Amino acid sequence: MEQLRDAAAEGRIDFEELDARLEQALTSKTHAELAALTADLPRPDSAGSRPPLVLKGGLYGASRGPGRWEVPGHVIAHGGVGGVKVDFTRAECRLTEVVVEAYGETAGVTIVIPDGWAADTGGMDPGFGGLTDKTTPDRLPGTPLIRLTGSGGVAGVVVRHPNRWERRKLHSNPARD
């Protein structure tokens, strides 16, 4: 029952599904019946065994994306003097939630998420540079939630969907599967 509640809290199943599965759990008579109730749930930590992706802006900046890359469960971005950009628009993400620790420092951090993805910025300290959230709350089913933590530092942290130029570039250069 705890696994089912956790899955609902993390958005891996909706609350209607939770109620149905909890009812089945309470009437189950064998361990096999109980195991069947969680066997199809996506695991929240399927990429959790991988080390976090650490990006440090340093003097010249750093970026990840917009090409194909596999998203780990934890991303750490330090803006440094050169800044950091994390672009998830073509990323392959099998997780329901990704924690992004962003530290704006001197040059800032920019996080670009595809349309349909959502960001939770409640864990961010805006610092002097602030936090700019230009995302929409319209999360599509099955898409990840980017959970932001960290501090805006002096330069700030921006989370947004692709801008016009990035959309044009994505459209003119479609992803190959």
Rank of each mutant, 00 (worst) to 15 (best):
M1H: 12
E2P: 03
Q3I: 08
L4F: 07
A7K: 09
A8C: 07
A8Q: 05
A8V: 03
A9T: 09
A9G: 06
G11Y: 09
R12I: 12
I13Q: 04
D14L: 04
F15W: 14
F15S: 10
E17L: 08
E17W: 05
L18A: 02
D19T: 13
D19G: 13
A20N: 11
R21H: 03
Q24C: 05
A25Y: 13
L26V: 12
T27G: 11
T27W: 12
S28D: 10
K29F: 05
A32L: 14
L34N: 06
A36S: 15
A36L: 12
A36V: 11
L37E: 06
A39H: 11
D40T: 15
L41R: 02
D45S: 13
D45F: 12
G48T: 09
S49V: 14
S49M: 13
P52T: 10
P52A: 12
L53N: 07
V54L: 09
V54S: 04
K56R: 15
G57W: 10
G61T: 08
G61L: 07
A62Q: 11
S63H: 13
R64A: 13
R64G: 00
P66S: 12
G67N: 08
G67S: 08
G67H: 08
G67Q: 10
W69P: 06
W69V: 09
V71R: 04
P72K: 06
H74P: 05
I76F: 03
A77L: 06
A77W: 06
A77N: 05
A77H: 06
H78A: 02
G80F: 05
V81I: 14
V81G: 03
V81T: 13
G83M: 09
V86D: 05
V86F: 02
V86I: 14
V86S: 04
V86A: 04
R90E: 02
R90T: 02
L95G: 02
T96G: 15
E97Q: 13
V99R: 03
V100M: 00
V100P: 00
V100K: 00
A102L: 01
G104R: 04
T106L: 00
T110V: 08
V112Y: 02
I113A: 00
P114W: 01
D115I: 02
D115T: 04
D120C: 00
G122C: 00
D125S: 04
D125N: 10
P126D: 01
P126A: 01
P126Q: 01
P126R: 01
G130S: 06
L131E: 06
T132R: 11
K134W: 03
T135M: 06
T135P: 05
T136A: 08
P137M: 05
P137G: 13
D138Y: 03
L140Y: 00
L140S: 08
G142V: 07
P144A: 11
P144M: 01
L145E: 12
L145V: 15
G150A: 04
G150V: 06
S151E: 14
G152V: 11
G153P: 06
V154T: 14
A155D: 07
A155P: 06
A155M: 10
V157D: 04
V158L: 13
V159H: 03
H161G: 03
P162G: 03
P162F: 05
N163G: 14
R164K: 15
E166H: 15
R167G: 04
R167D: 10
L170N: 10
H171W: 13
H171T: 15
N173Q: 12
N173T: 13
P174K: 08
P174Y: 09
P174S: 06
A175C: 00
R176D: 10
